[in-house]
Amino acid sequence: MEVRTIKVFTTVDNINLHTQVVDMSMTYGQQFGPTYLDGADVTKIKPHNSHEGKTFYVLPNDDTLRVEAFEYYHTTDPSFLGRYMSALNHTKKWKYPQVNGLTSIKWADNNCYLATALLTLQQIELKFNPPALQDAYYRARAGEAANFCALILAYCNKTVGELGDVRETMSYLFQHANLDSCKRVLNVVCKTCGQQQTTLKGVEAVMYMGTLSYEQFKKGVQIPCTCGKQATKYLVQQESPFVMMSAPPAQYELKHGTFTCASEYTGNYQCGHYKHITSKETLYCIDGALLTKSSEYKGPITDVFYKENSYTTTIK
């Protein structure tokens, strides 16, 4: 009895394709271990004539594949690729409408935090270190965002349907971005203890939790000093293409032309909904596939993004 075979390709990165001759009487799992086709788990399936010449994702289970996976995804987590594939199996079914010149995501599976993050990423200057993220990001900007969303979920250790947080998501993504040249110098002034300067680099240099107003941050924000008295913390120097200011959701007025974009969060910790506000020729609110415009805006804002380049204080 002759062994019926077909020729397929296996890959971990969709760049390096490895030619395989597979036995049609055995499952993919018996031949390769966990195997995925377009995100779908085909591990328990036997090869079919229609699979001839198709590319299958496999887990990096030998040295060659491990090197290829690390170079593309910059992670050695053995569960990463499987999590990416199972997320992709959902995100490829989502709709990605162009809204006001940006790629958004039609609401499904509690994905409003991903839509808000995706919209924000198209408006701030950011370059990702893992080629996987950078490639998928370019495709997302062009309207094909399924891979990018699935990668975000995998890097953030999230599953489809789980509630997510924009600030946490951005923080994970910033860790995989090139923020080497970003720098922030802060000064804390206390009447009792004097003053202390701190220099922050990388992710810490672009994120701040405690106030939404970048102007206020430049002037000074009140913080408790270690001595128990009130101290003032203010920005001395900022070198970065953008800054992200966050605070627990509270009524906040966004003035046209003073910011790049913002995240609105309605609801409580267990259950809520994100919308995205962007400042173009007027203010726009993007909620999944829905767009509304207004000249002014007041609502429960939790993150505001500002364009920056270089700032030095005039406070002496």
Rank of each mutant, 00 (worst) to 15 (best):
K46S: 12
Q195F: 10
K298D: 10
F259Q: 00
D62P: 02
T103D: 03
R4A: 14
E308A: 08
W94Q: 04
N61P: 10
V160H: 10
V67G: 15
K229L: 11
L88E: 05
R4V: 11
G220T: 03
P47Y: 02
Y284G: 08
S213F: 01
P224Q: 13
Y172V: 05
D303G: 00
T314E: 15
S279Y: 00
W94E: 06
G288Y: 00
S25Y: 10
Y214D: 04
N111I: 03
T192R: 11
P60G: 06
I223Q: 07
Q122W: 01
V67F: 14
A145R: 04
Y297R: 03
S86E: 14
A115Y: 00
L235I: 09
G299I: 00
L59K: 11
T5Y: 14
H48V: 11
G228T: 02
I315Q: 15
K233F: 07
K218H: 00
T75K: 10
F80Q: 00
F80L: 04
I301G: 06
Y138R: 13
D62L: 08
G202P: 02
E296H: 15
L126K: 07
V67M: 11
Q238H: 06
R167D: 02
Q30T: 15
K92V: 07
R184Y: 01
H51S: 04
E308T: 11
M26A: 08
M207T: 12
L153G: 08
Q175Y: 02
N147V: 07
G82C: 14
A115R: 04
E52L: 10
N268G: 07
T302W: 00
N61A: 12
T10M: 07
T258R: 09
R139Q: 11
N110H: 04
Q123Y: 05
K229G: 15
P249T: 07
V58L: 09
L37D: 14
Y138M: 15
F242V: 02
T226P: 13
K127H: 13
Y214N: 00
C285H: 10
K293A: 09
Q98N: 10
K229F: 07
T199F: 06
S181E: 12
T199Q: 11
C271M: 15
E71D: 09
Y57K: 05
G202R: 03
D77E: 15
Y252G: 02
M170L: 12
A69T: 08
L212P: 00
Q122F: 03
R167A: 06
G33V: 05
Q237F: 14
L133K: 01
S310F: 14
F80V: 03
